[in-house]
C-alpha cells in the first residue's frame, strides 16, 4: 500500500480506463475464425493426401489404441470387396459399461443395480427395532435377517440401509466378507421320478423306495436339509422299458436303486449349507 491513501485504487482505475479504449480481443466466431495451427490434433475428419486420395488405410490401429474406445470404424478392404468393421456395434453407453467390465478382467456381480423382488419387511422391522437401528450392530442385524429369510434378499439390504443410515455399499461389503452370509437362496437340486404304471412296472417302485430312504422324505417333498427336492415328473411315454428319472430336469437312463441312492446322498452332501439347520 502506498503512502497516499487511494493511490492504489486510482492507479487501478487509470488502468481500466486505458483498457476501455484499447482494441478488443474478442473473436466474433461465425464471421471471424481463429487460425488453426497446422499441428492441431482436434480435427474429427479423415485427411486426404495431395492426390486427393484418402490417407486412411483402414488399418484399425487408431481404433485399437483408443483408450476409451470411442472410435468405431467401418469400411471396405483395399480391393473394395469385403466390408470390414472394428468395434462393437452397440450404443456408446452400453459399449462403455461393457468395455469397463471387460477391462476389469473379472465378473462384476452387482445386485445393487438389478431389479429386486419385494419381500415382507415385517420380520426385518422387528429385528431392526430390537437392534435399535444401530449401524454398528450390522453383523448381528445381518445374521438375524438371514435367519429370518433364509438368505439376504436385496430388498432387506436396501431397507437396512434406509433405516440405519449405513450405505448400501457398506452393508454389501460387510455381508460379502462373511462366509456364512449369502445373498441368494441356497440352490436346491431336484431328482424327479415318474410314477406312471409303465415306469412302476419297469422297476420304478424300487427306485422310489431307495430314493425316499436316501432323502428321508416322501416323494413329492424336500429333504430336511433343503438340499434336495424329490419331484414327481411325467414321462409322457418317453422311456419304454426303463423308469423315467431326471436329475435337475435332465433324463437319466439305466439307474439302479443303489446308484440312485448314492447320487441322492452325494447331492445332499454337496449342497447342504451350514447356515441352515
Amino acid at each position: 500500500m502506498s503512502r497516499i491513501p487511494g493511490l492504489g485504487i486510482a492507479r487501478g482505475m487509470a488502468l481500466t480506463l486505458r483498457r476501455l479504449f484499447q482494441p478488443k480481443v474478442t473473436v466474433q466466431y461465425p464471421e471471424e475464425r481463429y487460425p488453426v495451427s497446422p499441428r492441431h490434433r482436434g480435427r474429427l475428419q479423415l485427411l486426404y493426401d495431395e492426390f486427393g486420395a484418402l490417407k486412411c488405410e483402414t488399418c484399425f490401429q487408431c481404433a485399437q489404441a483408443c483408450p476409451i474406445e470411442c472410435i468405431d470404424m467401418g469400411g471396405t478392404d483395399t480391393k473394395d470387396r469385403f466390408h470390414v468393421h472394428w468395434g462393437p456395434p452397440e450404443q456408446y453407453a452400453e459399449r462403455r459399461s461393457e468395455s469397463a467390465l471387460r477391462r476389469s478382467g473379472r465378473p462384476v456381480p452387482d445386485p445393487a443395480y438389478t431389479a429386486f423382488e419385494p419381500v415382507d419387511l415385517a420380520p426385518l422391522e422387528a429385528i431392526l427395532a430390537a437392534e435399535d437401528y444401530d449401524p454398528r450392530r450390522m453383523p448381528a442385524i445381518l445374521e438375524r435377517t438371514q435367519a429370518a429369510y433364509g438368505h439376504l434378499p436385496v430388498a432387506t439390504l436396501k431397507h437396512i440401509s434406509h433405516s440405519t443410515g449405513a450405505w448400501y455399499a457398506e452393508i454389501y461389503g460387510t455381508a460379502s466378507s462373511c462366509e456364512h452370509l449369502r445373498f441368494e437362496a441356497p440352490t436346491t437340486r431336484a431328482i424327479g421320478l415318474c410314477r406312471c404304471a409303465a415306469c412302476t412296472l419297469a422297476g420304478g417302485g424300487r427306485l422310489r423306495a431307495a430314493l425316499e430312504a436316501a432323502g428321508g422324505t416322501e416323494l413329492p417333498g424336500t429333504t430336511p436339509d433343503g438340499a434336495l427336492t424329490l419331484a414327481a415328473v411325467d414321462c409322457h411315454g418317453a422311456s419304454p422299458g426303463d423308469p423315467y428319472v431326471t436329475v435337475d430336469g435332465v433324463p437319466q437312463r439305466g439307474l439302479s436303486p443303489e446308484k440312485l441312492a448314492e447320487l441322492a446322498t452325494a447331492i445332499r452332501a454337496a449342497t447342504a449349507r451350514p447356515g441352515r439347520a
Binding site: T16, R19, L20, F21, Q22, K24, V25, T26, Q28
Partner: peptide
Amino acid sequence: KLLAWIALRR
C-alpha cells in the same frame, strides 16, 4: 457495454 469494453470484450 462498458464492462465488456473494460474487459477488452466487445
